[in-house]
């Protein structure tokens, strides 16, 4: 079975380590905050200028001056700090964020990512995504493996305008956890009950399959 959005978030959360500063993109990545393993402390960075993002406010706590990068009202966690946008991106571009999780439309086997524009259709802008992919060492892209029509999103060459070049090393899809190196996709894990054949069928770029491919554990 393909992973649900929640399971994608759960699997990403397994990559969190104690003391990590983490930037979560909008959509599935945001859900990762719900699955932080017990006994692990992480601090969430929101690129509009907040390190130590807390949960959503109660009705009484709502503050128009306190939002996250998705423009949602939030609260501050204990030990939070506030800063301007240049400082925020100094953290990101300077490689100080330990883990970045973001979505994409396409990823290719050279580590290129397309996530911000579909010419003629969706032109909303890249926000902070280009800074995040260029600045972070440790990035996990979360997305569905293929479109609803079965068109692969793991390609030999991205077809859409790029968000970043050669910067993606790990992709978690609803079918598989994949590493990108030496110009190839390497299958690390498969979703429970998903066959290797199914993953091969829906991966357009070159895919290296080791002898043993474990199922993800939850």
């Amino acid at each position: 079975m393909a992973l649900s959005r929640e399971q994608l978030a759960q699997r990403v959360a397994q990559e969190l380590q104690d003391g990590y500063y983490v930037n979560l993109g909008i959509g599935i990545p945001t859900l990762v905050a719900n699955y932080i393993p017990e006994g692990i402390e992480v601090m969430l960075q929101s690129e509009n200028g907040l390190l130590g993002m807390g949960q959503f406010p109660t009705e009484d706590e709502i503050d128009a001056d306190l939002i996250n990068a998705g423009k949602q009202t939030v609260t501050m966690a204990k030990g939070a700090s506030i800063f301007d946008s240049a400082e925020s991106f100094a953290m990101i571009r300077g490689g100080h964020v330990d883990l970045t999780v973001l979505g994409a439309f396409e990823v290719d086997s050279n580590g290129n990512i397309a996530s911000y524009m579909i010419p003629g259709k969706l032109i909303k802008g890249m926000g902070g995504a280009m800074d995040l992919v260029a600045g972070a060492e440790n990035i996990i892209v979360t997305m569905t493996h293929a479109s609803k029509h079965g068109v692969s999103k793991l390609l030999s060459n991205c077809t859409l305008p790029l968000t970043g070049k050669g910067c993606i090393k790990k992709v978690l899809t609803d079918l598989a956890f994949i590493e990108i190196k030496d110009g190839k996709f390497h299958l690390l894990e498969r979703a429970p009950g998903v066959s290797i054949d199914e993953i091969i069928k829906l991966t357009q770029g070159e895919l290296v399959i080791p002898e043993h491919v474990p199922e993800m554990k939850f």
């Binding site: 949960q55 959503f56 406010p57 109660t58 009705e59 709502i62 128009a64 939002i67 998705g70 423009k71 949602q72 009202t73 939030v74």
Partner: peptide, 8 residues
């Protein structure tokens, strides 16, 4: 004005 009013 609040753009995305999210509460728990």
């Amino acid at each position: 004005r609040i753009e995305q009013r999210t509460v728990r």
